[in-house]
């Protein structure tokens, strides 16, 4: 997920994970390469529909620029690059 690099936006994003009781296995925050934008990656063990519902909660958050749901195969592919 790409989102505004502001503490309050990050706080809000983490708040969504906590409040919606999302089963998180891993969490990483990095600079995105674009000034003012951070990349937040989190891993959850869930079916595609659940993952999509979590993504939808982020889509409507102000300060979130894009959300992508990567299935296991996608992330493996990305890791190989």
């Amino acid at each position: 997920m790409l989102l505004d690099d502001a503490l309050v936006t990050l706080n809000r994003a983490f708040g969504v994970l906590r409040r919606r009781n999302v089963p998180i296995e891993g969490l990483a925050l990095h600079p995105s390469g674009t000034a003012g934008v951070s990349r937040l990656t989190f891993v959850l063990k869930a079916d595609a529909a659940t993952a999509d519902r979590v993504a939808q909660q982020f889509h409507k958050m102000i300060g979130v620029r894009s959300v992508m749901v990567l299935a296991n195969e996608d992330s493996t592919t990305e890791a190989k690059r």
Binding site: H59, K60, I62, S66, V67
Partner: peptide, 11 residues
């Protein structure tokens, strides 16, 4: 936000 909600939700 309303426009965002729709344009960013493929599927």
């Amino acid at each position: 936000a309303g426009a965002r909600g729709q344009s960013l939700t493929p599927g």
